[in-house]
Computed example of a mutant assay.
Amino acid sequence: MIKSMTGYGRARKELHKRDITVEVRSVNNRYLDCTVKMPRMYSFAEEAVKACVQRAVSRGKVDVFITVDASAADVAKVSVNRELAAQYAAALGELAELCGPTAYKLTPETLARFPDVLTVTKEDEDLETVSADLCAVLEEALGAYNEMRAVEGEKLAADISGRLDTILTCTAKVEERSPETVAEYRQKLTARMEEVLQSASVDPQRILLEAAIYADKVAVDEETVRLRSHISQLRTMLESNEPMGRKMDFLIQEVNRESNTIGSKCNDVAIAQVVVQLKAEVEKMREQVQNIE
């Protein structure tokens, strides 16, 4: 079943003491445009995130929002700058000598108060593990996102299918009315010739020839056959699980072209009214197809 390009999905999960939240949203677009917004410290995983999105989505402007609470995963490491501490200790010893024989005892607590003697750093993170965790939560969000797109796709397919039925009905009306226009033209031509010639006899062969020329001029058999073919292909595409938005857009342009040709060929009020209805349905259908992946 076809999918809409409009969707939203969200997932939240705690992995390796990291609380990860991912939101995915998209709108229609001619091609795939993926934007990822995440904390700068996790920017190394951006390409992996985009690769996950590309596997799940083929068209649309997709925005991915990732937030990470890693406070529980932060492991602090305290290290001693031995060289600097020794220099502080030597300097304090010199000061003690200058002050005289006063008893002075240097303690670790005293040295620890000096700047840069003790440094606190975070342990290096396993980048591959973090990237895998982000993608795992993203996959869940994409699952919810695709479910919403599938629901929207079903509604679009139902609407387009109904409009295809209307177009098929209009096509049948054109096929039914087209031969009648030739017969009416023949009758009008005969009556006009008789009125002009009055007492003189009308050559039936001439009437038949003119009617044949007119019939060839206004014939829409080829256009209606192609219309039915396009409608059949569109119905098949509606049932496809592959992205069909671009193909459907092209076919609808062809349907519109055939409709214009029928309108320009037929100099008949009834057919003109049917063509107006047909083109209105085509235009509505084209707007819907713009949202199909």
Rank of each mutant, 00 (worst) to 15 (best):
L106N: 13
L111A: 03
A96C: 13
L92C: 08
A112D: 01
G100F: 11
N81T: 03
T129Y: 03
E97V: 03
E97I: 05
A85I: 04
F114R: 00
N81G: 03
A112S: 09
L98H: 10
Y104P: 02
K77F: 00
L92I: 15
C99V: 06
D126E: 11
E125V: 04
Q87S: 15
E123S: 01
G100P: 06
D126F: 06
K122E: 12
L84E: 15
A89T: 13
T107W: 08
V120L: 08
K77I: 00
V78I: 14
L84A: 04
L98P: 01
E128S: 07
T129R: 00
G93R: 13
A112N: 09
A103I: 05
G93N: 12
T129H: 02
L106W: 05
Y104T: 14
A85E: 14
K122C: 00
V130S: 04
Y104M: 12
L98M: 04
L134A: 01
L84R: 14
Y104A: 14
T121G: 00
E128G: 01
T102Q: 13
V120M: 01
C99Q: 11
D74P: 00
L84V: 07
Y104N: 13
L111V: 14
S79T: 15
Q87I: 05
P115D: 12
A85L: 05
A112C: 11
A86V: 05
D116M: 03
V80P: 10
L134N: 10
T119S: 08
V120W: 01
A86Q: 15
R113W: 00
Y88E: 13
F114D: 02
E125D: 02
D126L: 03
A76V: 08
E123C: 00
S131W: 07
A132R: 07
N81Q: 09
D116F: 03
T110N: 12
Q87L: 14
C99R: 11
A86P: 00
L118G: 05
A112M: 08
Y104L: 08
A96E: 05
S79E: 09
L134S: 09
A112W: 09
L95I: 14
A112Y: 05
K105F: 04
A103G: 07
A96P: 08
K122T: 01
A112G: 06
P115S: 09
L98T: 08
Y104E: 07
A85N: 13
A73C: 07
T119L: 04
E97D: 12
R113Y: 03
